[in-house]
Amino acid sequence: MTRVVQVTFDCADPAGLAAFWADALGYQLQGPPAGFGSWDEALDALGVPAERRNDASAVVDPDGSGPRIFFQRVPEGKQVKNRVHLDVRAAPGRQGDDRMATLEAEAERLVARGATRLQRYEPDPPLGAGHIVMADPEGNEFCLD
């Protein structure tokens, strides 16, 4: 039986990190539950106090094909390098200088939105196409591939 996968990030600012990843992936913030015009309206109805309204957030693929990404507030900060990370496929089908130029442009765009550039790996044929390692605004590593 096939399972549905959700990717979860532990973080300090779920709303902020959700906004970053929505932009990075072309996703959108998940809308409120059916019957509510906004998240504030839904959270009011659920009795969630103002200080708890940034405890969680989620983004979804507008086409419905990618996994939901969930962000949950945790008290501790990031401690070590991620063992699992996202690869953002920013240059599919491109090779060589064209591929790396596309990745560089996306790296610059994401740095302007709060990401940090960590390291560039040059193409190393036949298996290595080249990629750029980045970190999101809370330090979670990801690759532009």
Rank of each mutant, 00 (worst) to 15 (best):
P67K: 02
Q72I: 09
G64S: 07
E141T: 14
V84P: 06
R117D: 10
A112I: 08
F36R: 02
D124R: 15
G31S: 06
R73Y: 13
T8A: 15
A107I: 05
V4T: 15
W39I: 03
E76I: 12
V133G: 01
R3K: 15
G26K: 04
R109S: 13
A12N: 12
L118W: 05
G26Y: 04
Q72S: 10
M100C: 04
V59A: 03
V80G: 14
L46V: 00
Y121M: 08
A107R: 04
M134C: 14
E104K: 08
A115Y: 05
R68Y: 03
S57F: 04
R68W: 02
A105S: 13
R89E: 11
P14N: 05
R83M: 09
G31H: 06
L103H: 00
Q95N: 12
Y121F: 14
W21F: 07
M100G: 01
F71Q: 03
D13R: 15
H131I: 02
R83T: 10
R3H: 14
P33F: 06
R83H: 13
K78S: 08
F9G: 06
V7P: 05
V48A: 04
N82R: 15
F9K: 05
I69Y: 01
D145V: 13
E141H: 12
G139T: 03
D40W: 01
I69N: 01
F36N: 03
S57H: 06
G35Y: 04
Q95L: 12
T102V: 04
N140I: 10
D13P: 06
E41N: 01
R53E: 00
V74L: 06
N54K: 08
G130W: 01
D23A: 09
D98F: 00
A107S: 14
K78V: 00
A112H: 09
G64A: 09
A90R: 02
R68Q: 13
P123R: 07
G128P: 09
V84I: 15
T116F: 02
C11I: 08
F70L: 11
I132F: 04
Q95S: 13
D44C: 00
R94Q: 13
A107Y: 00
V48G: 04
C143R: 01
P32K: 03
A56S: 11
E106I: 00
R109D: 14
G96A: 07
L103D: 01
E138A: 09
A15K: 15
Y27F: 13
A50Q: 07
G16P: 06
N82H: 09
C143P: 10
G93I: 02
N82Q: 14
F36A: 04
G130Q: 02
D23N: 06
N140E: 13
Q6P: 02
A42V: 06
G31E: 08
R113F: 03
M134R: 03
G96W: 02
A12E: 13
R117H: 13
R83G: 07
Q79W: 08
V111Y: 04
D124K: 15
G26R: 05
M134Y: 05
M100K: 00
Y27M: 08
K78Q: 13
R94E: 03
